[in-house]
């Protein structure tokens, strides 16, 4: 090609320069956008960590309170009721048959109250949950339910039982308690089934009932305060320990709850 005239060369040179400038502007925009996004991302992460921390302290306080109540029941009310029972035992046979049967009735009631309080103290007490195996703790809960005569229970444990991380174990247990409470309160079930599966790298808990079930969509729309925050708590607690939970309900067929948690080195 023959040489270009001076004017054309100048225009060409400036055009190339402008092209270089646009190129740098675009690259600059992309880089700053990237940085900004990274910054936002980190901020989000910090917020998450902060919220987890907040949740953890809240749960800790809750556990402490439960522990305190449990001790109070055991040491104070329990003792007093024991004394009441002893006192009642010292009251000899009474002539009046009506009074006599009332006395026996009262003795039974006090005994039952004592037993119930002991059970309650046990389920509230965090130490007992940690010390015992998870499946034992659940079994204890199921037995208490069966004792009330509300429904029958069934439990199956697969895999080799091993200790879970104490904090996680408490949280999983509290979640299971809420699920069982819901069944007693709402489900009108005939039977409750619990399956626990210890796998090499995970732990799974399934609790099934054959009750009336409920409409999950309805629950989503409902006001939290109106409907109770139990299920909501289940989800926030599960999130804290990185567990997956799923609640599945079919009306007239029952509800299935499933919790899955990967157990890498920490457990």
């Amino acid at each position: 090609m023959h040489t270009l005239s001076e004017e054309i060369k100048i225009v060409l040179a400036i055009t190339v320069l402008l092209f270089a400038i646009t190129f740098f502007v675009i690259v600059f925009v992309l880089i700053s956008q990237h940085q900004h996004n990274k910054y936002l991302h980190e901020k989000e992460e910090l917020k998450n960590i902060y919220q987890q921390e907040l949740l953890r302290t809240r749960l800790e306080i809750q556990e402490q309170t439960l522990h305190y109540i449990s001790q109070e029941i055991h040491d104070n009310i329990g003792q007093i009721l024991s004394l009441v029972k002893l006192n009642l035992n010292t009251v000899g046979p009474i002539e009046d048959e009506k009074l006599q049967s009332k006395l026996i009735n009262t003795k039974d009631l006090v005994g039952k109250a004592l037993q119930d309080l002991r059970d309650l103290s046990k389920t509230l007490n965090t130490d007992i949950i940690i010390q015992s195996n998870f499946s034992e703790a659940i079994e204890f809960e199921l037995e208490s339910i069966q004792k009330t005569g509300a429904c029958t229970t069934y439990m199956e444990v697969k895999g080799v039982e091993r200790k879970l991380d104490a904090q996680k174990q408490i949280i999983i247990f509290r979640i299971a308690q809420e699920v069982l409470n819901n069944i007693i309160k709402h489900a009108k079930a005939q039977e409750i089934q619990a399956f626990i599966d210890y796998r090499l790298d995970s732990f799974e808990l399934i609790i099934k009932d054959d009750g009336i079930g409920f409409d999950m969509e309805e629950l989503k729309g409902a006001d939290l305060y109106e409907k109770g925050s139990g299920i909501n708590n289940i989800y926030t607690r599960a999130k804290m320990i990185q567990a997956e939970v799923a609640l599945n309900s079919v009306i007239q067929e029952g509800t299935t709850f499933r919790l899955f948690i990967p157990t890498t080195s920490t457990i």
Binding site: E7, I14, T15, L18, T22, V25, I26
Partner: peptide, 18 residues
């Protein structure tokens, strides 16, 4: 659009004269 209009700015401005 940015690339097109910025790069061609000088061509546009001089083209009539040229």
């Amino acid at each position: 659009l940015f690339t097109y209009y910025t790069c061609n700015f000088f061509i546009f401005i001089t083209y009539r004269k040229l």
